[in-house]
């Protein structure tokens, strides 16, 4: 008796393009932090350095023009310089928000799926491991970009709008595109690194701690080597330091302790290549399912 001939039909639909299947993963990743109240609070707290700069900007409106000596005394807080916009992002002040956000979201992105057994479900869908990885990186990047690219842009926009004339615009428009591009590269590189580390770990907690070692640990080791060998550029083994230098270079700004931008770029690229290479191995379909 051929009960399988009773008229079971395929669902009639036109498959979407592969790149469009990436977007739901990215969106899911981007929204993950906002699904819990704690995450939303953390996100707002991560904006604190930029909000602090915004308050300073509003409180000091007009002072820069009427008190010329201010520019000499408080060079770091002068809104006509790139350092004003970069300080909340690439200095020690911006490090904690970056660390919290990446540890909470990006570094757990794939590890939590692996721990929950969700990779098996993804791998049986019409999405490749590469598509899945790109989706996760894109989601993390968009989240980081909100804090580390969009927020400084809003800060710049405010500085232009509250200025009495076009002076602030003219002083800053020269470095703005480069700075935003640098910050975008910074956010993208860090998102890719964190998600790559996440792909290597088997549990979210393990991924978080591995990420801390990659970011904080290399920072300490970099400091040790810099002091012991009297070679400042050795500090670039920390991807964070390397990425920060890349941003400075894009913005055309040279900080007090500076490293060659090319070396920074190479160091960052090498870290990315190493982590992404290992992640690609770890995300092979068979291995992911077997473990």
């Amino acid at each position: 008796m051929a009960i399988f001939e009773r008229g079971y039909r395929d669902l009639a639909y036109r498959p979407t393009a592969p790149f469009r299947r990436i977007w739901p993963i990215a969106r899911h990743e981007l929204a993950a932090i906002f699904r819990i109240r704690f995450g939303t609070v953390i996100f707002i707290v991560c904006l604190a350095p930029t909000i602090g700069s915004l308050i300073f900007l509003l409180a000091s409106a007009g002072i820069w023009e009427t008190e010329p000596r201010m520019r000499e005394r408080m060079a770091g807080f002068d809104p006509s310089l790139p350092s004003f916009f970069l300080r909340p992002i690439t200095s020690a002040l911006g490090f904690l928000p970056f660390l919290v956000l990446t540890t909470l979201v990006s570094a757990r992105a794939i590890a939590k799926d692996r721990a929950a057994g969700a990779l098996e479900i993804y791998w049986t869908r019409a999405i490749t491991p590469l598509g899945y990885f790109v989706g996760k990186v894109l989601g993390s990047f968009l989240l980081l970009a909100t804090v580390f690219v969009v927020a400084p842009f809003v800060l710049w926009l405010t500085s232009v709008l509250i200025a009495p004339d076009w002076g602030q615009f003219e002083a800053t428009i020269g470095f703005l595109p480069g700075m935003l591009l640098g910050l975008t590269v910074h956010a993208a590189a860090m998102a890719a690194l964190a998600v790559g580390v996440s792909a290597l770990a088997s549990t979210p907690n393990m991924a978080s701690i591995a990420w801390l070692f990659v970011v904080v640990g290399t920072g300490f080791v970099g400091q040790v080597l810099r002091r012991m060998l009297a070679e400042p550029w050795v500090a670039l083994i920390s991807p964070w330091s390397a990425a920060a230098r890349v941003v400075d270079w894009f913005a055309g700004w040279t900080p007090v302790v500076s490293y060659p931008p090319a070396a920074a770029g190479v160091a960052l690229a090498a870290a990315l290549a190493a982590v992404l290479g290992l992640a690609a191995r770890r995300l092979r379909v068979l291995e992911a399912v077997a473990t």
């Binding site: 919290v100 540890t103 909470l104």
Partner: peptide, 14 residues
């Protein structure tokens, strides 16, 4: 805490 690692991170770094 439900997310003790994050709190630990805030304590250590912040």
């Amino acid at each position: 805490f439900k997310r003790p690692l994050i709190m630990g991170l805030v304590f250590l770094v912040g």
